[in-house]
Design a protein around this nucleic acid. Sequence first.
DNA 1: TATAAATGTCAGTCAGTACTGACAATCACT
DNA 2: AGTGATTGTCAGTACTGACTGACATTTATA
Lengths: 196, 196
Amino acid sequence: MSSSKNLTSSEKLMIAAIDLIAERGYNGVTTQEIATAAGLSEKTLFRHFGSKRNLLESAFDRFHYTEGLTKLFAEKIVWDLREDLLLISRTYHEMMNRNRKMILISIKDDAHLPGFRERTQKHPRQLMVLFTDYFKEMGKKGKMIQANPEAQATAFMVMNFGAFLNDLDGTSNFSGVSLEAFIEESVEVFARGLTP
Amino acid sequence: MSSSKNLTSSEKLMIAAIDLIAERGYNGVTTQEIATAAGLSEKTLFRHFGSKRNLLESAFDRFHYTEGLTKLFAEKIVWDLREDLLLISRTYHEMMNRNRKMILISIKDDAHLPGFRERTQKHPRQLMVLFTDYFKEMGKKGKMIQANPEAQATAFMVMNFGAFLNDLDGTSNFSGVSLEAFIEESVEVFARGLTP
DNA sequence: TATAAATGTCAGTCAGTACTGACAATCACT
DNA sequence: AGTGATTGTCAGTACTGACTGACATTTATA
């Protein structure tokens, strides 16, 4: 009784589409199934969206969060490595989890859905740039080992990307470690490993 | 002229299937396309394998490498953190790259191909266990910070998992950093971050 | 060259699926 | 109650894709 209140038919359809396609892939789900999951008829689906593809694209536009990272990021940095890494890590996971299903779709159906991958990667990329600059700046301030800031930033980012994917299904794939425990421990390792 | 020599028809079909399905997903590729890519007729495909699904399963059995990690791993450890992390990282990437396409398939078509995911994750999981034990042992020897060995091992593994996925398509997603540069820098960070 | 095994051709079956049109039922609002 | 918009039903179209059978052709090998 909680899921279908206050939603328009279009929204119900878009949400059902995202849920199912994220799980089974674009070609693994029929318009019939989507409509049924939304509690509506297939006809209604086509009346609203005209085509399956347009349904997904509309859903993507509507539910892919794209808030700017730049300000939030820049404003909260305190130039303490440990604290800043924690912030960045948490910001990253929050952002990724919001777009969890879109990201799954873009990974699974990359080949069929031109443009999707690009859009889900825009923000992680942006974060990567900000983050690399941050490392360079920390190096200049003498608060960080100066080695290869791009590689260091990449290591931190792919680590969090891996952690995110690992948790995606809910079925933690490698270990029983919680996201929070992972974040704390990994930040600790990087903070120690990068402090002069 | 290099690709189709010395291969049986079955092998050509299995390889074509793996290539195409890894790229476009199980439902995104037709048996016709697979046969054509193998330079054979669709009829031959069905004569050899009976069904599309069986083709993929046969391909998986034939080309999913499953060599034991245990011995190689245990024999080469020298109980020097930096050196051992390098070994583990390189072993991991070698293993993952060998099974690259199977892993992609298992990620993309998880929902349609029961059992595949499990099989591609068996070895990473095994490595994770060995690796966690290694950390515990290093802790006892006083060669490593004793904190949360599971979380530390997880951090290192998901980092490499993320790096692997990031490179999977060949289109390096986040940065221009090479795998080798990443490995060296990340090992350096972890070695410093985990040494007392 | 003869013979068997592997492959190709081609026409076709059958089920699934995106998508449509005509009409009926329901809902919202006054 | 009445009216317009939204949704449902249902039959149907057009196409695709896995899979088959009959027969011809090629290839390998003795």
